[in-house]
């Protein structure tokens, strides 16, 4: 008898919880991310509740500060990840939430993406080195070809 009531209680509690907001998704990325190339993949996990048969929808927000005082929605849909690229230098905060027909869940813990591109001096140095090696290679082939065409 006691076992049954415990079961009922558990059932009631779980149902009760389900009726309230869904669990928020969680980022799989660490709380702080760093990129030197301006691209990164954000992914999140979330366990669908009982009403997931009706479909679910995520919303991903981006903001320049952790308070999300001026945020923009950059993704709405069913996917569990999004690929960001072409970001300028700076800090970007992201948070995600979900709904299954009913109300929105709470926001996930935010994650920070810090973009700091390689310095232009490093880029130009390697670009120059590459250009030099390339031109020398062209020179070797062109000059060699000319020499053997003249006297094989």
């Amino acid at each position: 008898m006691k076992a049954l009531s415990t079961c009922l209680l558990v059932l009631f509690l779980t149902l009760g919880l389900k009726a309230i907001d869904p669990e928020p998704p969680q980022f799989e990325n660490p709380p702080e991310n760093f990129t030197e190339s301006g691209y990164i993949k954000l992914s999140w996990e979330w366990i669908p509740g009982a009403e997931s048969a009706n479909g679910h929808e995520f919303e991903l927000q981006q903001a320049p500060d952790a308070q999300f005082s001026s945020s923009t929605a950059i993704y709405q849909g069913q996917d569990f990840a999004t690929f960001l690229s072409g970001l300028k230098n700076g800090d970007y905060y992201y948070r995600v939430r979900v709904k299954e027909g009913g109300p929105w869940s709470a926001w996930s813990e935010p994650t920070l993406v810090r973009v700091q591109h390689h310095s232009l001096s490093l880029a130009f140095t390697l670009f120059g080195l590459g250009a030099l090696v390339f031109l020398l290679t062209v020179g070797i082939v062109v000059q060699g070809n000319r020499k053997v065409t003249q006297n094989p």
Partner: peptide, 17 residues
């Protein structure tokens, strides 16, 4: 994605050669 049309995106400059 402003950096994608930037002519001075450092990672791409390195990647070319």
């Amino acid at each position: 994605k402003p950096m994608l049309i930037d002519a001075l995106l450092p990672a791409s400059l390195i990647a070319i050669f």
